[in-house]
Amino acid sequence: MKDLQIPLNQTQKVRLLRALQQLQDLASKVTSSASVTVADTIPVNHEDGVLKGHGTSELDGEVVATLCGVVERVNKLVYIRALRARYKPEVGDIIVGRVTEVAPKRWRLEINFSQDAVLMLSSMNLPDGIQRRRTAVDELNMRSIFEENDVVCAEVRGFQHDGSLHLQARSQKYGKLERGQLLMVPPYLVKRRKQHFHHLERFAVDMILGCNGFIWVGEHVEARDNMVEDQESRPEQQNGKLNIISMRVEEQERTYTSLETRQSICRIANAVRVLSSLGFSLNIEVIMETVELSISLNLDIHEMLGAEFCVQIAEREVEWRSSLSKKKG
């Protein structure tokens, strides 16, 4: 998702710059690690021995930074953690991706990584819900499961010997995502947490915060057991054409998303857009606070992307961090 181009008047510009400066000052007080730019010298104790890690180099006997970021130290290892970097997958990461190719026995997905990820046919649940070996028929029916441009949720399985990144989707919570919006934000804004799946009951909306910076906001879908569903549908199929027609009507009703739910999806998505444009870390608490603020101010959904609301979010963040630092102090 590209940064929002928000037109600010002079007063709003001054307020926003002041808020961002205050946030920077507060962050420098809290963070003990030093921020460095390219060619800055990193103070180290050569007597204890130093291991130069990522983003560091040696010049004239001194350790210098080759990246902009924060100095991190683990025992003797010194490295730079880049503030803005591409997504670096770790095993177990929850990601959201878009299918780019249906290949033999696998799908390729764009996940905001340096290369496409691979989801093997053998690494996911089949629609019939039965655990069995994949056959040639399953391979021929791959497009009925996922096709190009489908949005898919999966889990990082690991890197293979050929260097490719492999995914898996062996649970009901993974799979194809429909009836919602896909948002793309810088991956460093989404921190790894225990829970990346969120059901917002009040709005009847599901949100998935992908570790790769792809965020899904869509209508809530109940996880159903496919095996039970198949057993229930078999006797209906034997009754004849009348039941087939009624099933089609029910299917249309299930795929219809109410106006209220669509508005909720758009409001939550706009909250993500505003926070991302300001460079704030994204978690469910901050996103929902932003949504609640927009509701309390009686803002229409499109007004959330206006300059005034953007400035108010920055000022609210300053107040929250200031009160937090006072409590710690």
Rank of each mutant, 00 (worst) to 15 (best):
L109T: 02
T31F: 01
M120Y: 01
F146H: 09
Y256N: 08
V99H: 04
V91C: 14
R133G: 01
R18S: 13
H54E: 12
L119A: 02
M247P: 00
E110I: 01
R84F: 06
E260T: 14
R234D: 07
E62C: 03
G53W: 05
T100A: 07
V221A: 14
Y87F: 15
V64K: 06
S33M: 04
L324W: 12
V286E: 11
F214I: 01
L293K: 12
Q160T: 07
W216L: 05
R73Q: 15
L209C: 04
D60K: 13
L183N: 12
V156G: 05
I80E: 14
Y79I: 06
E260N: 07
L324F: 13
E90P: 00
L324M: 10
A65R: 03
S28H: 07
P186I: 03
G55H: 06
G175V: 03
L77K: 13
R84V: 07
P43C: 02
L67M: 12
N270D: 10
K326H: 11
L20P: 01
V228Q: 05
S122N: 10
R254C: 05
G329D: 08
R193T: 15
V30R: 04
L293H: 06
M142H: 06
G158Y: 05
N149A: 13
V14I: 12
P186E: 03
K13V: 04
N239K: 14
I215Y: 10
C211A: 09
Q237V: 07
V102H: 04
L8R: 04
A169N: 05
K13H: 09
D138T: 00
E90C: 04
Q195T: 08
L297E: 13
V78Q: 00
E110A: 15
D40E: 09
V118Y: 00
N112Q: 13
E308Y: 03
E147H: 12
V221G: 03
E110S: 14
L77Y: 02
A154Q: 09
F197Y: 15
K327F: 05
D230S: 12
T11S: 05
V36Q: 01
L126V: 01
E139Q: 14
I111M: 06
E319M: 06
L305P: 11
I208L: 07
L182Q: 06
Q12T: 02
L51F: 10
L167V: 02
A136I: 10
D25P: 00
A269S: 15
G97C: 07
V190N: 12
L8K: 05
S35E: 08
Y174F: 15
R321Y: 08
T255G: 00
V286L: 13
S122C: 02
I208W: 01
E58R: 03
E232L: 15
M120V: 00
V99Y: 06
S35R: 12
V14Y: 01
S233F: 13
L189E: 08
V190H: 10
A307T: 11
G329R: 04
V38K: 15
S258I: 03
F203C: 03
N112F: 07
V91S: 14
H302T: 12
N149I: 00
L177C: 04
N9M: 04
H220E: 07
E148V: 13
V50D: 04
R193S: 14
R193Y: 02
L167A: 06
T290E: 10
E219Y: 06
L121Y: 01
E319D: 13
T31P: 01
G97R: 09
